[in-house]
């Protein structure tokens, strides 16, 4: 069974996100001062072939913890979508 994983990686909430801070600052410049606390992360999609959803989930967790996210500074979450 083939799945698409949609992965979101975000800087840990406790850590300063300078990129998000800069983008927040620019909100004023486009006339949206009511927007606050922008935080910028990454969205990653990938395709995975696995026997079932549990097996796919295990592999994606492996990819996230080993390479895609650094848990010292980031958190991740994902969902799987079966491909036709």
């Amino acid at each position: 069974m083939k799945y698409t994983a949609h992965i979101n990686i975000m800087p840990q909430k406790a850590l300063l996100d300078p990129q998000g801070k800069a983008v927040t600052g620019s909100m004023k410049n486009i006339g949206l001062p009511e927007i606050e606390n922008v935080r910028v992360g990454k969205h990653i999609t990938l395709e995975i072939d696995a026997a079932n959803e549990a097996a796919a989930k295990g592999k994606v967790d492996d990819a996230c913890t080993k390479l895609l996210a650094n848990l010292i500074m980031e958190t991740y979450e994902f969902h799987l979508q079966p491909m036709n």
Binding site: P11, L16, D17, P18, Q19, K21, N70, I72, M73
Partner: peptide
């Protein structure tokens, strides 16, 4: 070295951008 786990911690984007 930090990414490989040979050293503790991580290096983040500079505070002042």
């Amino acid at each position: 070295l930090c990414e490989s786990g040979l050293l503790p911690g991580a290096l983040l984007r500079n505070e002042n951008r």
